[in-house]
């Protein structure tokens, strides 16, 4: 116990790392599935691509219990307030994944009915483009998200 534990930074940064490590492998996702991307979400979630290998296989259908909001599929103006409300109900720390190009930018649905990217209504942490993204792309995105969660440790 020679080391001065009260020195600023040392212990807290290690704790942050540990928390980040724990968090990134126990992602509780809330799948907000609306459209075509749901088909690929199913593929990723099921046994063939098996999202569970990355510790994200446990969908929580209550926003209170989830920490990653997966927005899967086109968001129309009609459902946008619902999505926003679900985001608001989630407890921090929380991350948002825009799954599919419709959620990233509106995709080719540039029309009166579709939200032109969910980042106009809530903050997005990870964009996974593709129409729909192939499962491999989703897994790559998920690993990126894990990196981000690890790096952040705690997030207000």
């Amino acid at each position: 116990m020679e080391q001065d534990l009260s020195a600023p930074g040392i212990l807290t940064s290690q704790l942050d790392q540990a928390i980040g490590w724990a968090r990134k492998y126990s992602i509780f996702q809330y799948p907000f599935v609306t459209a075509c991307c749901g088909m690929e979400f199913m593929s990723v979630a099921c046994s063939h691509y098996d999202i569970d290998r990355f510790g994200a296989g446990f969908p929580r259908f209550s926003p209170r219990q989830a920490d990653v909001l997966m927005v899967v599929g086109t968001i129309s103006h009609k459902i946008a307030p619902v999505l926003r409300r679900i985001y608001d109900q989630m407890a921090a720390p929380k991350w948002v994944v825009a799954f599919g190009v419709c959620t990233c930018t509106g995709g080719f649905y540039d029309n009166y009915a579709t939200v032109q990217g969910i980042d106009t209504i809530l903050p997005v942490d990870l964009y996974i483009p593709g129409c729909p993204p192939r499962p491999e792309t989703v897994l790559e995105g998920l690993m990126l998200l894990q990196k981000k969660i690890q790096a952040q440790g705690r997030r207000a």
Binding site: H77, K78, A80, P81, R84, C104, T105, G106, D110, V115, Q116, G117, T120, I121, V124, D125, L126, Y127, I128, P129, G130, P133, T137, V138, E140, G141, L144, L145, K147, K148
Partner: peptide, 24 residues
Amino acid sequence: PLIGPADASARERLSPADLRPRIV
């Protein structure tokens, strides 16, 4: 729109070339 900006097309968009998953 019910929520969000009235004209979203003015905002900064993802580049079409950026076809890989991207962290913000």
